[in-house]
């Protein structure tokens, strides 16, 4: 299990090259990468604030739960903070399991929980000004399926 909270970019290829290859019982690896997108055509950058200490703790708790629940062979979460330009990767998760259903489900669970339970806050820097991104009811509702 690996968890990293960092400002610098991560190397997706390097992170996934050896991920889940430690044993003979891994039949499925799922990865997800979140990228800064610009819906309005006005976004210059996204700024992510976080709560040092609690962030690592919250992510570890969520990841440990996924490891146990889906009997994962391995799990990886990298989440960036600071100022990110449109098109830059924000975060990635990877899960390794015996079967694909477990790997996919665990990755979705991790994503749903990271969105609403890891202490990050996004602020949009637009040409016209700045605004904190509001949490969506749909994101909170997404937790109910787990």
């Amino acid at each position: 299990m690996k968890i990293a909270v960092q400002t610098e970019p991560f190397d997706f290829a390097a992170e996934t090259a050896s991920f889940g290859t430690g044993g003979n019982n891994v039949g499925a690896v799922v990865t997800f990468t979140g990228i800064v997108r610009d819906d309005s055509g006005d976004l210059e950058a996204l700024e992510l604030e976080h709560y040092p200490g609690m962030t690592e703790r919250a992510i570890a708790k969520i990841t440990e739960e996924a490891m146990t629940r889906w009997e994962l062979a391995d799990a990886l979460v990298i989440h960036r903070h600071g100022r990110l330009a449109v098109g830059e990767p924000i975060m990635m998760v990877a899960t390794a399991a015996r079967h694909r259903v477990a790997a996919f489900e665990a990755a979705e669970f991790l994503m749903d929980y990271l969105k609403s339970r890891a202490p990050f806050w996004k602020k949009e820097h637009m040409r016209s000004g700045t605004a904190w991104v509001a949490a969506k009811d749909a994101d909170e509702d997404a937790l109910k399926r787990w």
Binding site: M91, S116, R117, A118, P119, A134, A135
Partner: peptide
């Protein structure tokens, strides 16, 4: 004690 708005990670 920490106060903050609902989180928007991911």
């Amino acid at each position: 004690v920490a106060f903050f708005p609902p989180m928007t990670g991911g």
